[in-house]
């Protein structure tokens, strides 16, 4: 408990230091290109009460959630299939590598050209960018499954559902948690690009408008507000989930 609170205090102190350095640099620079943090926070407060900040964040968050769920579901299914079958892996490994190395921008532009400037195209573009990363992580996880535990499950004739719940999924959970955490960070960044290129709303769209008006305060305000939401998900949902799935490892020490 002591360690936890000292760690939290250190993080808070580091954040205050960063804001202080930003405030001093902005005051010294005295330029429209670098607004001070108090001005950015004032913008966030103003936009949150009387502007579109909340609705734009909600729209972007919706896109993040849908594309994240689609990417995780498809990525897991593909990864487990490739990890279980050497033939499938040989046949489709190159596809995964090609997709993994195709720039996010290219995938996004192609989705918009082929499917039009639609919500489905936006979600598909984000999911396609994320699927190969999830698939590769889950493939490695599946390859590392223990044949000994598999044989134990056969020896005791566990039902397919029991095998899945008690033998397979727990072995894959650390990989799933890793894929989810790295996935969320990637997905929300790509969602902003996809919105900037082809959606009429959302944080990415708002930032593109602010960019055209050279309103750096608004760009930073939107970024910080959305970043705060994603950090809340990271610390409030993903990290507790990861700690939960690893509880049996921690208790060994």
């Amino acid at each position: 408990m002591k360690l936890l609170s000292s760690g939290t205090a250190a993080r808070a102190a580091s954040l205050v230091l960063l804001l202080l350095a930003w405030e001093i640099t902005a005051t010294l620079a005295h330029s429209r290109s670098l607004p001070a943090p108090h001005a950015v926070f004032a913008f966030i407060a103003r936009e949150a009460t009387g502007g579109d900040l909340v609705s734009n964040i909600a729209i972007t968050l919706g896109r993040v959630v849908v594309s994240f769920v689609v990417a995780m579901a498809l990525g897991c299914a593909i990864g487990v299939a490739l990890g279980r079958s050497r033939r499938l892996d040989t046949a489709f490994d190159t596809w995964v590598i090609v997709l993994l190395n195709t720039p996010a921008l290219v995938i996004t532009v192609l989705c918009y050209i082929w499917l039009g400037l639609t919500e489905a195209a936006a979600v598909l573009a984000v999911a396609l960018n994320k699927i190969p990363t999830v698939a590769v992580l889950m493939r490695e996880g599946t390859r590392a499954l223990s044949p000994e535990l598999d044989e134990m499950a056969s020896a005791f004739r566990l039902s397919p559902m029991d095998r899945l719940r008690h033998v397979l999924i727990p072995q894959l959970q650390p990989h799933l948690a890793g894929a989810a955490r790295s996935g969320l960070a990637l997905v929300w960044k790509i969602v902003l690009v996809v919105e900037l290129l082809g959606r009429p709303n959302g944080v990415g769209y708002a930032i593109s408008v602010c960019f055209q008006l050279f309103d750096v305060t608004a760009v930073l305000g939107y970024s910080l507000a959305f970043m705060a939401v994603m950090l809340a998900i990271e610390y409030g949902v993903l990290q507790p989930y990861e700690a939960h799935v690893r509880r049996w490892r921690l208790s060994a020490h």
Binding site: L149, F156, L158, P170
Partner: peptide, 20 residues
């Protein structure tokens, strides 16, 4: 079956391993 190595599920408690 009792294997040469215990082959218990590390993420289930002792009782859960037996009950399963």
């Amino acid at each position: 079956v009792a294997f040469q190595e215990p082959r218990l599920l590390p993420w289930r408690t002792v009782e859960e391993n037996i009950r399963l």
